[in-house]
């Protein structure tokens, strides 16, 4: 379940990054991301999807872990891990 929370956060941050012009241009250097960009609607909508994915990850964490406070700690930890992963990925794009 935590892995799923992490994946949702990854996708959420990916959408938020792609919604920014600066990073959308970088995404042009990646074949996968170019395909993703074609599918995604306008920048505003992509931002909205990104935030909704992050909220969904929070809801999933709180629903799947019995103790709320431990769920929050998990969510915050995976959030940092997801943000680091996305930042490192975009840094590796030329």
């Amino acid at each position: 379940m935590i892995t799923l929370v992490f994946l949702l956060q990854l996708l959420g941050f990916l959408c938020l990054m792609l919604a920014m012009n600066k990073h959308a241009k970088q995404a042009g250097n990646s074949r996968i991301l170019t395909q993703v960009l074609r599918v995604l609607p306008s920048s505003l909508f992509t931002k909205l999807i990104g935030w909704m994915l992050l909220i969904a990850s929070l809801c999933l964490a709180m629903a799947s872990i019995e103790i709320t406070s431990i769920a929050m700690v998990w969510w915050c930890c995976t959030l940092s891990a997801a943000l680091l992963s996305i930042a490192l990925y975009f840094s590796s794009l030329p």
């Binding site: 938020l16 990054m17 920014m20 600066k22 990073h23 970088q26 930042a87 490192l88 975009f90 840094s91």
Partner: peptide, 9 residues
């Protein structure tokens, strides 16, 4: 919040 950080290598 407006600008994600990446690493310039």
């Amino acid at each position: 919040f407006k600008d994600f950080f990446t690493l310039r290598s």
